[in-house]
Amino acid sequence: MPYQIIVCGGLAPDPLQTLEPVNGAASPGLKNEMMLPGVLDPWASHALYEAANLARQHPGSTVRLVSLAPKAKLQQVLMTVAQKLPFELVALDGPNNGFSDANETGKALGEAIAKIELPMENVLVFGGWESATRGSGVVMQIVAERLGIGDVFLAVDEIKVEEGGSFLVKERVEGGKHMVSRCAAAPAVLAWATGNLAEPPNHPQTGMANMRVIMPSLQKATPTAVGTGMAFASASLPKQVRETRIVKDTPAGEIAREIAEWLKQ
């Protein structure tokens, strides 16, 4: 059965950049954030790769990326993302950073998806379970609520479609274990953890084909105001804890045993 797969994905600053919180007029932000190169949020990226993989297995499926981000920044990021797999774009031109309000973001994404007016019986909504900016972990639930979708899976690592249209979903739970659920049918919302797929290589031909559709969509990006809805008392980077020990000629098994013991502490 072909699916209509919608992937929600925002932007995050390139992880190699220097990320320094600063207090803005309305809310905190990152120093020089607009000047920093961005990437598609890594959690959303996993969801996108999984979506493309699922679409390949089910001919006739379509992948759409719904993205709430500053249009100009999104365009730059798409120069890489669009080369990786075929998809269409629904762009919302609005603020996107670690201090956006999850409720407002979820609302905007939900409304944008609803506007596509897809028949819900084969819709799967993907997104990141977390975010590399400042994940509240609730955006996808809010999107589900807005769309009236009751089947929501969090921290997903795998989806396996069965004959008849039901599918198994593997979610991460405590203790390094997975919980496997069977969902009878779409629609469903899956907030992805890392999945199992590697980042697809760049393929300019795919990019060229994508961009012919994506660029007009980007030009038509809907200006979207996203209120913060909250006040921030302060913002700071997590403290770095670095305990380095240099070892030489230690067998890998021994290193693994030590790490496992450390984790148990």
């Binding site: 730059q76 120069m79 890489t80 669009a82 080369q83 290589p201 760049n202 300019p204 990019g207 060229m208 961009m211 660029m215």
Partner: peptide
């Protein structure tokens, strides 16, 4: 955008 993509691809 063809060139912008080429840049990203080569850079990778």
């Amino acid at each position: 955008y063809d060139l912008a993509m080429l840049v990203q691809s080569v850079r990778a």
